[in-house]
Design a protein around this nucleic acid. Sequence first.
DNA 1: TATTGTTATACTCTATAACTATA
DNA 2: TATAGTTATAGAGTATAACAATA
Lengths: 150, 150
Amino acid sequence: MPTRTGAAYFGRLAAERPDIALCRASADVARAAEAAAGKSGLGVGHHLVLKMLAAVGPCSQRVLGEELRIDRSVMVGIADELERSGYVRRERDPGDRRAYAVTVTEAGRRALAEAERAVPEFLDSTFAALTAAERDQLTSLLGKLLVTVS
Amino acid sequence: MPTRTGAAYFGRLAAERPDIALCRASADVARAAEAAAGKSGLGVGHHLVLKMLAAVGPCSQRVLGEELRIDRSVMVGIADELERSGYVRRERDPGDRRAYAVTVTEAGRRALAEAERAVPEFLDSTFAALTAAERDQLTSLLGKLLVTVS
DNA sequence: TATTGTTATACTCTATAACTATA
DNA sequence: TATAGTTATAGAGTATAACAATA
């Protein structure tokens, strides 16, 4: 039997296996996000840490990592780099001197604001195949999924 | 300022950033898939290769890799392991002697059938938070996304 | 020249274990 | 004992470059 092309097989697979569709879509989106993040000079993890700090205030590295699902051993490097860039300060938490109170600086807020400006365009191009309503639907479905799985 | 907990911050983030929700949901699902695949003895990639071969007939490693998005250098190892398990044969393609015509064996079909039996339960538990209609919605939305991004 | 399969290699992500200083 | 941060390391997953055989 000769070799067939198998073209368009993936479409059938994705229709049958939401898990596979989810993982491949995620890989594509993650790659696009990395490319977009690269332009602003902030990695995705750095961006998220800055964003969370700006939203909830000073946090320990443990809390940042738990919420953002970044391992503490990885968080060390992200905090190092953010600190070296002047975007973050590591102050000791007076209530628990083992922990840092990681704090955004003004420069960090500016870098975040600049990175945030690129987000709508990134989302629009990445999710261009979906209408606004469909995008909301997707967000809602993923939200339900996340509650149980994580 | 004392360190705050930041609990439930991720929910807000996911509601605002479908890309992040997608990537985290995917990571969770992939982990569940790996665990489920581990039980049947077939890795996820091995399972997919067997499934595609059973569905479309003998394929070259290149075609398998392109469709399943597995790099050819990785496909070598998967084909090696499937061959060593007796699930696949590598016959030379008479039409192009550079390429193999990778072919499922009977043992391969049996292993695939057994692995496939575990899939519905895996999907039901992984996507338990969604109704059947919502699961279809998700599949359809991801399908639209995949067409453009990939 | 280009392509299939192969090998070696590298890079990212993630995870684990062990250590320190604090609790 | 347990926890926060740190370091080193190891394992996946993915990607690149170079090579032999063939087209």
